[in-house]
């Protein structure tokens, strides 16, 4: 999962560098969009496999048989995916800045915050949909079909938020970040409520 995500995000950096002509386009306008598209794609590639390796030998049942609350399995999957996502973002973001010559205005705190909130927004539903798609025949396809529309709000808020953070002079990202926080809260609560129902099939 880690290797796939890293390899994928680096490849996307290069591909975007070729796809967007730096001589024609003002890069700073499209930079947040490129950044978050890359993170979303790489995240989806990684997270879609979260439950896939539980399938061949039905290890998920093995986990369920262990004593303790089943919610722990979901939270563990979520945490792992989040940490992978964060690690990937932290390594890839400087590369993006370097390759796209994006000026850096020193807003460490708010950029870290939007990276973390965005990663959380992507992994929450990603983990749930991965649990669903692992058990279906065309699971990968269904995962992609459902992930994209569900992640549109994350994409909008993170891109606009990042844009406000990186622009010179810095804008106010808080309206977008609050929206993203609301999204994160709702889609953390819903899978936690619904996750138990996944077992009985």
């Amino acid at each position: 999962m880690w290797v796939t995500m890293m390899a994928f995000v680096i490849m996307i950096v290069f591909m975007f560098a070729f796809a967007v002509d730096a001589g024609q386009v003002r890069l700073s306008l499209v930079f947040p969009g490129i950044l978050w598209m890359a993170f979303l794609f790489a995240g989806m590639i990684g997270i879609s496999r979260t439950y896939a390796h539980e399938v061949p030998e039905d290890t998920l049942t093995g986990l369920i048989l262990a004593p303790g609350d089943r919610m722990a399995i979901f939270l563990a999957k979520l945490t792992t995916a989040f940490l992978f996502m964060m690690g990937m973002e932290l390594i890839a973001t400087p590369i993006f800045f370097a390759l796209f010559n994006e000026p850096w205005n020193g807003a460490w705190g708010s950029l870290l915050l939007v990276l973390a909130l965005g990663a959380l927004g992507i992994v929450e539903l990603g983990t749930l949909l991965s649990a669903i798609s692992a058990n279906l025949k065309s699971g990968e396809m269904i995962f992609t079909m459902l992930m994209f529309p569900f992640e549109i709000p994350v994409l909008i808020t993170t891109v606009e938020g990042t844009h406000a953070i990186l622009s010179q002079p810095a804008g106010n990202p808080w309206l977008w970040l609050h929206g993203l926080m609301a999204y994160d809260a709702i889609f953390l609560a819903l899978p936690l409520l619904l996750y138990d129902y996944l077992w009985e099939v």
Partner: peptide
Amino acid sequence: RSDPRIGYLGHQSFLYPS
């Protein structure tokens, strides 16, 4: 509720292949 005093041997091994 699962219980560690019960051993369940299923069709599959419940072991991670990798």
